[in-house]
Amino acid sequence: MISFPTQVDRKKRFHQAIAFWIARIISYSILLILFFILFFILKRGIGVINWEFLTAMPSDGMTKGGILPAIVGTLYLVLMSMVIAFPVGVLSGIYVNEYAKEGAIKQFVKMMTNNLAGVPSIVFGLFGMALFVNRLGFGASILAGSLTLALLALPLIIRTTEESLKAVDDTFRHASYALGAGKLRTIRKVVLPIAFPNIITGLILGIGRVSGETAPILFTVAAYFLPKLPHSVFDQAMALPYHLYVISTSGTNIQASRPIAYGTAVILILIVLGMNLLANFVRSHYSRKVKMK
């Protein structure tokens, strides 16, 4: 019988412990940074948040009053861009993964989707202005802004849909075909329900991305100062990220606007958080419906 040197074991264990600790410290420090940012913003912004801040129009050159139009504008933009991007993105993902034959066209579509995901958001903004605002004549409006934001979120939703569908085991598809189900029915009744909780992740990511973007709405919808709520999709609107940008860089009195800027940031974070929670709830609801366990 060979006797293995005991030092080797000890050394192995030591190396392992070090590796774990490094990984642990790194992940904790990321959390720490996140908490620090949140704390910093909350500490400076929480003071200005009250009922009036949430429900009043900005006043006195945006140094006083509330941010209601920006909240409403952002909610409209997120909602409408997702209403546009989600079905289009999911259908595209289904096409790419389930219908498109392996080959040049599929590769091209996938490559273009990836490229689209890498395009800087200001370029989307310019494109949206050229196409939606000018060419199609929507003017600077919620419609034009939502369409631009939808384009921005589209690659994200297509990719997650594609990945979620790819993760569905082929044995489920085969079992369905073997029972005489066609392709469409198999996708609708078997594949999509299994993939849906993961597809919702795409929606969550899309919401997060869209609600915080400034550049795409800059030329397509955002108003510098508009103390009334939009009445139709052809109206301009204020939006939280752009409002934040305006009162921190080009307001009438930047110093006096500072607390409002932080308050706006807090509300923006809360909205994103709230939408993520909602999407998570939907996700777990569908997970329960799919009886994987």
Partner: peptide, 29 residues
């Protein structure tokens, strides 16, 4: 395929209820 049923090597029930698994083929058809 309705006339020629198939059972696979690995059990592959759908992630649905027991009832819905058996009812699936009926509904599909």
């Amino acid at each position: 395929r309705r006339k020629v049923g198939m059972v696979f090597q690995k059990p592959n029930p759908f992630p649905k209820t027991i009832f819905e698994n058996v009812a699936y083929g009926l509904r599909v058809n």
